[in-house]
Amino acid sequence: MYTAGIDMGARSVKVVFLEELKVEGAPQLKWGVKKTHIMFPEDLDMDVAAEKAYTEALQLAGLAREAVGRVVATGAGRKQVKFAQDNVTEVSAGARGAVFMHPSARTVIDVGAEEGRGIKAAPDGKVVDFAGNEKCAAGAGAFAESMSRALQLSLKDFGEASLRSEKTIPMNAQCTVFAESEVVSLIHANTPKEDIAKAVLDAVASRVCAMARRVGIEEDVVLIGGMVHNPGFVRSLQGALGVDRVLLPDLPEYVGALGAALIAAEIH
């Protein structure tokens, strides 16, 4: 028996199929995961994109539509997934998926391009409390993305550059738009790119950390969302949180879809 989790983002769909395996008589969830990540053009309607992606994912996984007992959707476009029986918020799905991958995690920090949030999770992956800074680019990956463009570096090179710096330069501007001018003046003052990169990532980390403090930081801490791929940010976050380690999931893109699939398995 399979369940499916579908994470409907703004420009991509992630699908995870979860197989429920019987182990020693008792039903137990095994991570028999089949996953698919499909990008779609922006002008495609979300419900059409969801249907197309799901059909493609079933084919890639070699599964018949009937083999999947239950589909739960998550992500910004979760309500457009017409064939899902249920939908859950990114917060619930993210926490569930993250704690499944790292059972010791009690604090889940989710930093994507457009939002940053701190989630306090129970041992079963349920959300106890969360605090977010949505709809302002300053507390999210978009801030770093925007500054990396000002430095003419890819986000990846930007993160790596920051690792080469040990300097702490405070950024005065809180707003992404104003910070761009501040970065430009730092460039004009011949500040090394790696120092600027670290200053930017430290700034995002301190904002995200302040949000996480509202829910209380309990170890272990796991980071999910797009910023997982940015080792410079991970270091800045460790520093801001004052913890020795921040856990990272193996398949960061699929945490939300996995969480939705797990929730689907629990409710069916």
Partner: peptide, 16 residues
């Protein structure tokens, strides 16, 4: 979107 950064992407989307 209130945020200028997000409003910018929203504006581009509307043009498209």
């Amino acid at each position: 979107s209130v945020c200028v950064v997000f409003a910018k992407s929203e504006a581009l989307g509307l043009l498209k």
